[in-house]
Design a protein around this nucleic acid. Structure first.
Length: 394
DNA sequence: GATCCACGGGAATACACGGATG
DNA sequence: CATCCGTGTATTCCCGTGGATC
């Protein structure tokens, strides 16, 4: 490295912003306010929602597509914009004292990963319908359902969009159908999931289906460049590297962003001001196959995430068996049997994988190695950031 | 006092293997 | 040889209890 470059590096390090400027912009679990490259899906969703603008309800619907194809990104962004519409008109038209009835159906977003029970579902719907916060305890499930009824009845209705349907640990299809049936008749739902229509019986209840295909390579390149420009110092990611990541990710934005995040984190750690091919390759190496969604991991109950966070730091030989991992995690203030049950449960959900040992030992059933199936470094960093954020703003 | 659900513990079941048995 | 049995470990299943919150 020549002297100029060395000097420039020192100067940049001191005078310029950090290499990683915004972790949120890089996070595979976060969505942009304006998603990139999904104009067609946006139009299809607007077509589907179109009756709402005439004060009518759309039919039940189903949006399906593979992981990392932008379903949640587009839907959450679209809903956040749509929800602003009635609020704007309300302020202008109505007096502050009168309780106004909206002239068109309202939009509700429910994440089935966090609303995993009937109680959670009603609670999520209700808290979206009213401004006040809804208690998590002390109120019965039936009472919540009745409150949803009183909120919706006599209005033009609501479209309830239920994301991440039929994933492990989220709401399954028949539960959704049952819950929806328990709501007033002026409610439509839009389910978002990964199963194609022939793999689900959900479509027997829907009047509209929207399929989403994986991102084309060039679009994924654009997404990576966009995120890099928002989250990293200038010129940190060059186009060729973005192309490499996109080629590897094969249309899966989640995995592509996980690589970008991981590579950037690594580069920042050793003071680079640009991502290199070896950063990218190392990051790619660190992504498991198959890779479970980080936002799914980050919406697990708190103590399960805590177990995973500590699992990340265990050495491989401490993960040689479920029992050994349980012992190694005993520093957590959870009982051994709970930790063990968590590990089995999360293996069931695909968050970790159990790999049966070669049958060498004599006695008993062979143990299983514990292998994380999520991007370790990215999870670690996001988990720690989130915790710090919470303790700053309790 | 009511409510939900995370925890914790333990029972039941599955699996692997060597050795005994028919 | 095929099957069963005993032992030891792994895994799954189930449910009561208590903490946290209203």
């Amino acid at each position: 490295m020549d002297i100029k470059a060395r000097i420039r590096r020192r100067r940049d390090h001191n005078a310029q912003p950090q290499f990683i400027q915004r972790y949120e912009a890089l996070s595979p679990a976060a969505h942009l306010d304006e998603p990139v490259g999904r104009g067609q899906l946006l139009e299809q969703l607007l077509d589907y929602f179109d009756p709402v603008f005439d004060g009518e309800l759309p039919p039940n619907g189903y949006v399906y597509g593979p992981i990392g194809s932008g379903k949640s990104a587009v839907l959450t962004s679209l809903l956040s914009h749509l929800k602003e519409l009635p609020a704007e008109t309300r302020e202008v038209i109505h007096t502050s004292t009168r309780v106004q009835t909206p002239s068109s159906p309202t939009f509700v977003y429910v994440d089935a990963r966090s609303a995993t029970s009937a109680f959670g579902f009603y609670r999520s719907v209700l808290s979206s319908l009213i401004d006040q916060s809804v208690p998590e305890h002390g109120v019965g499930t039936d009472s919540l359902r009745d409150q949803v009824h009183t909120q919706v009845q006599g209005t033009p209705g609501a479209v309830i969009c239920v994301d991440h349907i039929a994933e492990p640990r989220s709401l399954d299809e028949s539960t959704l159908v049952d819950l929806a049936a328990s709501l007033p008749s002026n409610v439509s739902w839009l389910a978002i999931g990964r199963a194609s229509p022939d793999q689900t019986h959900l479509t027997t209840y829907t009047g509209a289906e929207i399929g989403v295909s994986r991102y084309r390579r060039q679009v994924l390149v654009d997404i990576l460049m966009q995120r890099a420009s928002m989250g990293l110092a200038r010129q940190a990611l060059n186009h060729d590297l973005a192309r490499q990541v996109a080629a590897w990710a094969d249309g899966n934005a989640h995995d592509g962003l996980a690589v970008l995040f991981s590579a950037a984190d690594n580069a920042a750690g050793v003071g680079q001001d640009q991502l290199t091919e070896s950063n990218i390759n190392a990051a790619i190496e660190s992504i498991p196959e198959p890779c479970v969604s980080l936002s799914a991991v980050l919406s697990l109950p708190a103590n399960r995430q805590r177990v995973l966070r500590h699992l990340v730091n265990l050495s491989p030989d401490e993960r040689e068996s479920v029992n050994m991992a349980t012992d190694a995690l005993s520093a957590l203030d959870l009982s051994a049997s709970t930790i063990k049950r968590f590990l089995y449960e999360m293996a069931e959900a695909g968050v970790i994988r159990r790999v049966q040992a070669e049958t060498e030992q004599q006695k008993g059933r062979p143990p299983s190695r514990v292998v994380p199936q999520f991007p370790l470094y990215v999870f670690q960093r996001l988990y720690d950031l989130r915790r710090r954020g919470q303790s700053n703003h309790p």
